[in-house]
Design a protein around this nucleic acid. Structure first.
Length: 152
DNA sequence: TTTACTCTCTATA
DNA sequence: TATAGAGAGTAAA
């Protein structure tokens, strides 16, 4: 039996939507809309703690499917680019044996922002981009998150 | 400031 | 299955 839920966490500059199925997170979405909080589970709790600066690692069950290169990029981010750290597209590309373009693309198609810290990937001379899957630019979120972690 | 380059994913036929 | 196009960057001219 499938159990599908959407939880909402409110932040200063918008809301975070968490899409879960059978208590496994399948997608996270950032929005600029202020929505009422909804749900009290491992996902909302961890993200709340994270936004308060009390938690530095998000660790809950997730599921995503992708190619081998993206997988490599994402797992490297999750394991090595932890709270307060940042990395450039170029560096990450070198580590994963690919090109910066691909890293950017991997970030753009990242289904789990926050869990996969794509906001910690910046350009060499600029903050880089940050676009949600619905095509909206989420630069504000990127700045907010980096500031939260003290990287900015 | 502009151009070329790199490489994977996605869409289309 | 094969081909074309696009993508949150970078380095060189």
């Amino acid at each position: 039996m499938e159990k599908f839920e959407i939880s909402v966490v409110r932040a200063e500059i918008g809301s975070i939507l968490i899409f879960t199925r059978n208590d496994v997170c399948e997608q996270i979405q950032l929005t600029e809309d202020i929505l009422p909080e909804y749900g009290n589970n491992i996902f909302t709790r961890q993200i709340n703690e994270y936004l308060c600066g009390e938690r530095k690692v998000l660790d809950f069950p997730v599921r995503y499917s992708t190619g081998p290169v993206f997988e490599k990029i994402w797992s490297y981010l999750k394991e090595n680019v932890t709270y307060g750290k940042i990395i450039t597209y170029g560096e990450l590309a070198k580590i994963c044996g690919t090109s910066a373009r691909v890293v950017g693309y991997a970030m753009a198609s990242n289904p789990l922002p926050l869990y996969i810290p794509c906001h910690r990937v910046v350009g060499k001379d600029s903050i880089g981009g940050f676009t949600a899957r619905n095509g909206k630019s989420m630069i504000k979120w990127k700045e907010y998150l980096l500031k939260l972690e003290g990287s900015l």
